[in-house]
Nucleic acid binder design. Sequence first.
DNA 1: TACAACCTTAGACCCTACTCTAATGTTGCA
DNA 2: TGCAACATTAGAGTAGGGTCTAAGGTTGTA
Lengths: 120, 120
Amino acid sequence: MLINELSKKTGITAHTIRYYERYGLIKGVRKNEIKSNKYYHYDDEVVEKLQLIRDAKSIGFTLSEIKQLLDAWFSKKFNVAKKVAVLDEKLISIDEKIKQLKEVKKLIAQFKREVEENDC
Amino acid sequence: MLINELSKKTGITAHTIRYYERYGLIKGVRKNEIKSNKYYHYDDEVVEKLQLIRDAKSIGFTLSEIKQLLDAWFSKKFNVAKKVAVLDEKLISIDEKIKQLKEVKKLIAQFKREVEENDC
DNA sequence: TACAACCTTAGACCCTACTCTAATGTTGCA
DNA sequence: TGCAACATTAGAGTAGGGTCTAAGGTTGTA
C-alpha cells in the first residue's frame, strides 16, 4: 500500500509517517518493476509497527526507546538472548511506571478526602 | 529560604525553578523590609509544590496539567466542588494510564514468550 | 488532455520543557 | 576592602517530536 492508505489505516498522518521513516522506525520499499515513479510501498508489518509505536508512545516511551523495542521485535540481526533482554528491560520500566502512577494516585485520593472533609 | 537552598532541598536546579516560577507553578515573595536587594524568598509550601511537580512529571503529566492540579491543591479561589472535579479528572486519567500500561505490558510479555518458544 | 488527487524532497517552523549565558547587583567573611 | 558565592533579568540555544510549505513529479478518470 502507499502512504495515504497506510495513514488511513493507522490514523497517523503521512507527514508523521515520513518522520518516523527518516527516524528509522519503519521502512517502505520502492518496487524495481515500476520505473515511472519513486513511490514507497508499505506492507502489513509496517501497519503493526505503527500500532506499536502509537501504543508505546501513549505510555510515555520515547521514539528512541521504541526503536529498541522494534528492533527486538522485528530485527533478524538480534539473537534470542538479546531480544529477551530488551523486552525484559521494557517490562521492568513499565512496572516502575505503574508503581509511580499508583503512588501519585494515592496522593491525590488522599488530598481529595481532605478537601471533602475539611471544606478547605 | 532563597533559591539556592530551595534547589538543594528539592534537587531541582535554580534555572528550572525560575522557569517554573515564570510559568506560574510556584511563587516566591520579596520581603518589604529588605530594601537592598530583590531576592525572592520561598516557604515550605513551595517545597511541597516542587515535590508534587516532580512526581506528576514523572508519570507524564504536562506542566499545564500540573498547573491545574496545583490550583486545585493550593488555591483559595476554587471552591470544594471545583477542586474535587479537577482531582477526579486527574484520578481518571491516572487510571487510564495504568490501563494502557498494562495492555502494552501484556503485548510485550506475549511477544517475549513467542521469542523464547520459537527461537525466532 | 485536463485536472484532481496522489506522490517526492528539502527545509523551515512550532511547541514543550528546559538549559545556559551575559550582564549586573548583593552579601558575608578574611 | 577584596572577593567568592550568592542573587537578578533578558534573552538565546537545545532536544524531542512533530507539522507545514514549496516546488516539483505521477496517476487515473472524464
